[in-house]
Write a protein that binds this DNA or RNA. Structure first.
Lengths: 104, 104
DNA sequence: CGTGTAAGGAATTCTGACACG
DNA sequence: CGTGTAAGGAATTCTGACACG
C-alpha cells in the first residue's frame, strides 16, 4: 500500500529525438501534440523538452486516435474524462480510508 | 516465470547531460568510467551516448567505491566477479530445468 | 590515477513562419 | 487541422590534449 511510484516510468528524462525514435512520430508531431495540450513534457534549465516512458505510451495512444481520424480536441476531452474518473476514485478511496481510520 | 525484463529500467535512452544531473557526477567522470570499462552506454547513429536507469544505479555504486579510495581497476574486477556469479547461477538453473523437463 | 578545462567541430533542439488543404 | 520544411540561433555532445599530482 501507499505511494511507491517514484518509478522510472514517470521520470522525465528523454529528449525529443529519442522519443521520436521510440514512437516513430516526427518531432513536429510530438511538439504539435504538446501545443494541443495532449502531452506535458518538462523542460531543462535552458528549455529542452524532457519526456517519460509514460509519455511514450500516451503518444502511442494519441497516434492511434489520430489515425482513426479523431481530432486533437476530441482526444483532449477523452483525456480529461479519464483524469476525472481517476480523480473521483482517488477521493472515494480517501473517504473510505477516513471512515476506516475513525473506527480504529 | 520467464524473461519479462524488456523493462524500462534497462532501456538506453538518456543522454549524458541527464545522467550527470541524475547522478551528480561530471560528464568527464562518466566518460572516464566508460573508458575504464565500468559502464557500457550505447550510441545513437551519430555517436551520442545513451544510458539506462540501470546505468544510473551502477554509476552511484562506482562513485561510492571511488570515494572509498578504490581504484577503477579493482572496481572492474569486482564487477567481473559479480557477473561470473550470475553466469554460474543461470547455468545451474538451466541444468535443473533440463533435468526437470526430462522427467516429464 | 582520476579529473578539470579550453578548443573546435558536429549534431540536436528550439521557435516562429510559410505552405498545403 | 495536422504536418512538412527551410532558417538561424542557442545549447549539447564528442574527441584528443594539456595540466596537476
Amino acid at each position: 500500500m501507499a505511494a511507491d511510484n517514484t518509478s522510472y516510468k514517470d521520470k522525465k528524462v528523454m529528449t525529443i529525438g529519442i522519443i521520436s525514435e521510440l514512437t516513430g512520430l516526427s518531432e513536429r508531431k510530438i511538439r504539435y501534440y504538446e501545443e494541443r495540450k495532449l502531452i506535458f513534457p518538462e523542460r531543462t534549465g535552458k528549455g529542452t523538452r524532457k519526456y517519460s516512458f509514460s509519455d511514450v505510451e500516451r503518444l502511442m495512444e494519441i497516434a492511434d486516435h489520430i489515425e482513426d481520424g479523431i481530432q486533437t480536441y476530441e482526444i483532449k476531452k477523452e483525456l480529461k474524462k479519464k483524469q476525472n474518473r481517476e480523480e473521483r476514485n482517488k477521493m472515494i478511496r480517501g473517504q473510505l480510508n477516513a471512515q476506516f481510520n475513525m473506527r480504529k
